[in-house]
């Protein structure tokens, strides 16, 4: 986002992401993909790999923003942060056994060991739990998915949801709780 010039705008950007402003998310996603793609392809990657890595990185950036782990320090901080996460994830992949098994790396092209971008084991455990929750949600029925999306992602009020689904407010509230219980059961099944 070349036009983002001031740190105030970065702070506004972070705020917009926290409230899931879809236009902002889309702009951020679309404007930063090519740079990551070029980096990955220039470093032995493929087009689908570039997409996968970028989406993983974008999700990680999003989660870190939600948890206040990212604080903008300069005018292109978030864009740089997104690129850095992508780069680290790709470096990790190149170093992983999965990559080494399938690819012959000519001598002299191996990457030098650097400190890994992975955090502590606790961090990885939390990431895994979150991924399980994502997969559990994906398995839910359409109605629950829609209701939970409108409330938790689009941040609509119960009153708005009630009119959207054409039900009473109390009924919307109970439905939401029942959907959450279903999701919880699915998460428990995934974790065990």
């Amino acid at each position: 986002m070349g036009e983002v010039k001031h740190i105030d705008q970065q702070i506004a950007l972070v705020k917009a992401i926290k409230s899931n402003d879809e236009m902002v998310l889309k702009k951020l996603y679309q404007e930063n993909f090519r740079k990551v793609e070029v980096h990955i392809i220039k470093n032995k990657g493929s087009v689908p790999q570039a997409k996968d890595i970028y989406q993983e990185a974008f999700l990680a950036m999003y989660q870190n923003i939600k948890e206040d782990k990212f604080v903008p320090r300069n005018e292109t901080a978030l864009q740089g942060y997104l690129f850095q996460i992508s780069k680290n994830k790709w470096t990790d992949f190149l170093r992983s056994s999965q990559f080494k098994k399938t690819t012959h790396i000519p001598d002299g092209l191996q990457l030098k060991e650097e400190t890994s971008s992975n955090g502590s084991e606790l961090r990885q455990e939390n990431d895994q739990k979150e991924l399980n929750a994502i997969h559990a949600f994906q398995k839910m029925g359409t109605e629950c998915k829609k209701l939970l999306e409108v409330f938790y992602f689009q941040k609509k009020s119960l009153r708005e949801i009630a009119s959207l689904f054409d039900i009473g407010e109390a009924s919307a509230r109970n439905k939401k709780y029942r959907c959450i219980q279903k999701l919880r059961a699915l998460v428990l099944a995934t974790n065990s």
Binding site: L59, E130, F137
Partner: peptide
């Protein structure tokens, strides 16, 4: 769970 919902939709 809540961040799983948001993550899945993202």
């Amino acid at each position: 769970m809540l961040s799983g919902i948001e993550g899945a939709i993202l």
